[in-house]
Amino acid sequence: MNKKKFVRHSIIYFLLILGYVLLYVANLDSILHPDRELNPKSSVNFVYQQF
C-alpha cells in the first residue's frame, strides 16, 4: 500500500466535500457577509393570458 497515494486521496476528498458544503449546500457569500440583505426576484416572467 502506498501511503502517499492515501494522503493525496484524503486531501482531494476533503476539498471535494468542503467545496460541496460551502458552494452548493450553503452559500459561501452568505456565510462571509451575514449582514447582506437580498432582494429576491423571480427568474420566470409569467405573461397573463385570457385563455
Binding site: M1, H9, S10, I11, Y13, F14, I17, L18, V21
Partner: peptide, 19 residues
C-alpha cells in the same frame, strides 16, 4: 477500501470538525 473508502471517511470527519 484503503484508497477511497477510508480517505472519504477521514475527509468527511475533518470537514465535520471544521464546520
Amino acid at each position: 477500501l484503503f484508497y477511497h473508502i477510508f480517505p472519504i471517511l477521514m475527509a468527511a470527519g475533518a470537514v465535520t470538525l471544521l464546520l
